[in-house]
Design a protein around this nucleic acid. Structure first.
Lengths: 109, 109
DNA sequence: GCGGAGATACAGACTGTCTATAGGAGATGA
DNA sequence: TCATCTCCTATAGACAGTCTGTATCTCCGC
């Protein structure tokens, strides 16, 4: 029946993207690969999740983007963190700490 | 503008409910209070989130319920973990560990 | 020049949480 | 006994964000 299985917890995708871009600008599929790499394959972000997120985040003013050329000489859109995006990353990381601590407490009790 | 702010990460509500019920059977509002207590107020599960979740979980066969009387002599529906629910809790806790580890790794990098 | 792989993009479905509201039933005080 | 408060369960509808699936374009190797 193909029920869509949400593996990624709601809200964490943005945080992962922001974190990856904090290192430096990167194009869409590059971001996706990097996320898979740092999470050792736990999160494999599909294009249909990634691009809507990137556009939303650009609208929010957390990202800026421009056309460039990929490592393999293909036209690619590069995304770059804004100052606002950096602040957002800070705040999302704090939120994650708070939530994850609360759940650990609940599970440990 | 009253945008609905999802504080609870998708999928974690079930886990918290299962964990609370692993201690012993409990009625709806009791579960809600207990969650607020063990997470020190981080998660305040409102009725409109709680009851749909309980019904869904009962349909899945993770819970069993029956009418009883609350501590204050009011009619209350008591929810109880089934064996299937206990297995589900195990599996959700494992999933949480995996995911939270992956995110910690990503944030730490 | 043709097919495959790299890369971006959009439409539609689905899941689960949130807000808001309703209503019964016991306790309490006048 | 009546009003009212609190406890407890319940449903409807809105909404956000992720997933599946598909389309499009471009570069590269053969």
């Amino acid at each position: 029946m193909g029920r869509s299985q949400t593996e990624l917890l709601q809200g964490t995708l943005d945080m992962l993207i922001l974190k990856v871009l904090a290192i430096g600008e990167m194009h869409g599929l590059g971001i996706s690969r990097r996320i898979a790499q740092v999470t050792r394959g736990t999160f494999e972000v599909k294009p249909g999740s990634l691009f809507p997120a990137l556009h939303r985040m650009e609208e929010e003013g957390w990202l800026r983007s421009s056309w460039g050329e990929s490592e393999s000489n293909r036209r690619a859109r590069y995304y770059q963190l804004t100052r606002k995006g950096r602040r957002q990353l800070q705040s999302e990381a704090k939120r994650w700490e708070r939530i994850s601590l609360a759940i650990e407490r609940a599970l440990g009790a």
